[in-house]
Amino acid sequence: MTARTAIGLVAALAALAILAAAPFFLGAYGVGLLIGLSGYVTLASAWALFSGPTRYVSLATVAFFGIGAYTMAVLSETLPYPLVLAVAALIGLAVALVVGLSTLRLAGVYFVIFTFGLAELVRQLVTWYEVNVTGTLGRYIFMSFGPETIYWQLLALAALTLGLSWWIGRSRLGLALRIIGDDEVVASHCGINIARVKLALFALSAVIMTLVGAIQAPRWTYIEPGIVFNPTVSFLTLIMALLGGANRLWGPVLGAVPLFLLFEWLSANFPNHYSIILGLLFIAIVFVLPKGVLDFVEKAWGRGSSRARNKPDEAGLGELEAGR
């Protein structure tokens, strides 16, 4: 381990400790905010885990999120909590495998189309099941633990997701992914099993999304398909990951924090117009920052400093000063 990674690790652990202690200093509103925030940080990071390097745009975030939440609602009365989480993860994994096995061998557009309608499909299937088999639509969830526990679980999951994507980034799997993202033909000539690598990553990211839904579900108390399969979740996750930069470890986190706070503010002050504002913002991000803020800042920084190095006695001095 180099000194730089050691420092990074210590800083990350310190930040994690501070965040874990936050509920003791914040009120109920603060904890609620932190729950939403850590949920979206995890969703955006999990999204970027697969879609960042492979450039397969997944629009199905809320399908997995909703599956997790609904599994929790259906099983929380009958099974112990950890077992429900495990069942939710398994269902998410099964759905991801079906989606992945049928589309990931083909061009990216088939995957996008399949994921585009997936949330609506699952929502209609759940509704159909509830109306025809159980006879009720909508369920209550009662848990013995408070919002702090939900927050700590989400925080742990967020840390785990970031740790995983850090580890994958430097493993053979991450290298394979980067080659696939750059050029699939080259990747297959290197002996990489493209479909299997993509499938593994997609399944992993889907399981994390499912767990976020399952853990967050008790926050609502009352759940129905229209609430947990809300397409805004997929949309927000996508903007967050893109704003920060889906190819960077910290990109999704950096995108999630400001956008989540903006979304909170918008939905409180402009409840009818937030999807218009977010849509316009999203289009602006696609046009202006296609690779994310981090990449943009690094490019601007790199350009400034290299120019400064080349011509030190001309315009460079001012930029050097500004750079410091």
């Binding site: 450039r55 557009v109 996008v112 893109l242 009818n272 937030y274 849509g279 296609p290």
Partner: peptide
């Protein structure tokens, strides 16, 4: 393809939002 998917996905929410309002 990726750019158009992303841009029109944003457009979807804009048009839908206008119609909802």
């Amino acid at each position: 393809e990726i750019d158009s998917i992303l841009a029109t996905f944003g457009l979807l929410f804009v048009i839908q939002g206008v119609m909802l309002v």
